[in-house]
Amino acid sequence: MMELIVTVFSAAFFVTVIRTTTPLLLATLGGLIADLSGALNVALEGMMLIGCLTAVIVSVYAPWYVAVAAGLGAGALLGLIMAFFAYRLKADIILVGFAINILAAGGTVFALALATGGDKGTSINLQSKAIPAVDLSFLSAIPGVGPILTAFLSGHSVLSWVAAFLVFAVWYFLYRTPWGLWLRGVGEYPAAPEAAGIPVNKVRTWSLIVSGALAGLGGAQLAMFNYVGFTRDMTAGRGFIALGAVLLGARHPIGALLAALLFGAFEALAVVMPGLFNDVPAELIRMIPFVVTIAALVLFSIRAQRALAMRGVK
């Protein structure tokens, strides 16, 4: 137990938490934007997975930032497809989302087999690149706190910093710009913005595109930093966990950050625990993020119901 506590409060663990949180946070922000526009984006999982594969394949032939942009673009394209079928062709958005997940699960394996000439499932044959870590070791020069700052702040992926900035950007967009107001209005009560002359379907479509782009970005981080390379189903439910994180985060960007950090911390715990406890089975450790998601979902729902009841009383 003592080792666990020591590990959890070490700088290395903090860096691991940031690493596991980043893809989740990006997907959660994507889920948040879709959710606020009135669409439960169950396709986050598939969008991330296709983002992973696109980033890995492009990174073989292009610099890392092009690969990241490609992952982002692939997610955005999937968002557009989703919007097209859900809003123009009036399909149920949840079914469309699952169609995209099925497409991603099969399509990535298929595309990988083509790209590698027969490899089904992993991209071992591909020389894919990684996203560079931001080196802030010059902070050590600061007397006193310098080394600590370096230990905590250095070595994160570029995308981790981008994600942190995006939390602020999404908050600013949602609550300080007219378009954010439109988006929230469309999600809350579409008839009102419609009457006010706001292009409701356009807002919804763009929300799904941005949602997909963020999920694709999360996929790029997953396949180019957390792991370098692609493996079949490598997202392993992160897109679905992100859906839970949106709800747990009370549908707010700061809440999304905290929820993603919580899930990231438990995932990091699952990463470090096998080294510390040999007697705890790996399967049970791998279950942790899913159990935590359910527990969080239940707790959040209780809280939301209590809030509703209080409003009803007043």
Binding site: L247, P281, F290, L297, V298, Q305
Partner: peptide
């Protein structure tokens, strides 16, 4: 969980899938 608490059934059922798979593995 949905009826009593309003917990989203999509998310909870998907999480239960992963838990069942790991339980079976174990």
């Amino acid at each position: 969980a949905k009826a009593k608490l309003g917990a989203n059934e999509i998310v909870s059922s998907l999480m239960l899938n992963y838990i069942a798979i790991e339980l079976c593995n174990y």
